[in-house]
């Protein structure tokens, strides 16, 4: 990453310069809007519009199979969601999945990036090997892991059997299913964080290591004093992107377990899908989805505040 910190430009004090600059800026923005228009129109049409419509719908008893918004429901849908144990357990599954996946995805990708950076020969191979799973579509990755987890014959089960450990019913046991999906996800998405860390590592000037080595720093001291502090911006970025990606989990759970067994792996997004599309209750689904949106908003706001603070420190 070559993200340079914001450096306040000197001067800009003379009145005339500022006004001229402003006018020039204004003239510059018009063609910019023109270039942005294709994106903005589509964005308004397919993201902002539907989002507003969804919020409106959440206050009505809208049905998928009836035209129009239906009867006004006030906050009934929200009250129902707050009272529904199914909604909260689905929200908890999403959060639990995030808790299970974020630490290994951050720590392992950091460790692997360090190791790949150290490799003298065949560095390209390690980079490719760790990044390759990330480019798989979710359905392909899910199929591979369903095979690995197949009771009796799957590689994961069979190899544990060989060393004398009785494998759990990976996806069939409610107390194991979430962990099994988390393991598969770590393998799948590790590559993205790995690449970010690799880039971060390469931005650290070599001279720092050289001079610290001359001063007698051990590799461990170099790691603690140079590598980790200088990667802190990358770590913040990786953690936040990872938390948001994990909170958005849907594909692999829907394909691997469809939320089962006994709803033990149904994430918030699947709950919304089940309610809105399978049960036709779009109004209530929209309310659940708005609550979920608020959760993501809070997480993003926390990140924003955190980065602002970090930038001020820098």
């Amino acid at each position: 990453m070559t993200a340079t910190a914001y450096v306040p430009r000197p001067a800009e004090t003379v009145e005339g310069t500022t006004r001229r600059r402003r006018r020039r800026l204004h003239d510059d923005t018009r063609p910019a809007w023109g270039f942005l228009a294709p994106f903005l129109i589509l964005y308004a049409l397919f993201v902002i519009g539907p989002a507003i419509y969804g919020v409106v719908m959440s206050f009505f008893e809208t049905s998928l199979v009836k035209s129009g918004l239906g009867k006004f429901a006030g906050f009934d849908n929200y009250v129902e969601a707050f009272k529904s144990s199914d909604f909260w357990s689905a929200m908890w599954h999403t959060v639990w999945f995030t808790i299970l996946t974020t630490p290994p995805l951050v720590i392992l990708s950091f460790v692997f990036a360090l190791l790949a950076e150290r490799a003298v020969h065949g560095r390209w191979f390690f980079r490719l090997a760790f990044f390759a799973p990330y480019i798989l579509p979710s359905a392909v990755m899910a199929l591979i892991w369903i095979w690995l987890y197949t009771p009796g014959l799957g590689l994961a089960t069979a190899s544990l059997d060989k060393i004398g450990i009785t494998a759990p019913a990976w996806l069939g046991d409610p107390s194991w299913a979430m962990t099994s999906i988390a393991i598969a996800t770590v393998w799948w998405t590790l590559g993205f964080n790995f690449v970010l860390y690799l880039a971060g590592l390469q931005d650290i000037p070599r001279e720092l290591y050289e001079s610290s080595a001359i001063d007698g720093a051990s590799p461990w001291q170099q790691m603690r004093g140079i590598t980790i502090p200088l990667l802190s911006r990358t770590t913040t970025l990786v953690v936040v992107l990872q938390v948001i990606a994990s909170l958005k989990v849907f594909d692999q759970m829907y394909i691997m377990t469809s939320g089962g067994p006994n709803f033990s792996t149904r994430p918030a997004l699947e709950y919304i899908y089940d309610i809105g599309f399978t049960d036709y209750r779009v109004g209530y689904g929209a309310a659940a989805s708005t609550l979920y949106f608020i959760l993501l908003l809070i997480v993003s706001a926390l990140w924003f505040m955190q980065t602002r603070r970090a930038e001020k420190r820098a």
Binding site: E61, S63, V65, K66, E80, R281, V282
Partner: peptide, 10 residues
Amino acid sequence: QTLADTKPPT
């Protein structure tokens, strides 16, 4: 009962 109390979407 929760399901029975929910207004049918159909």
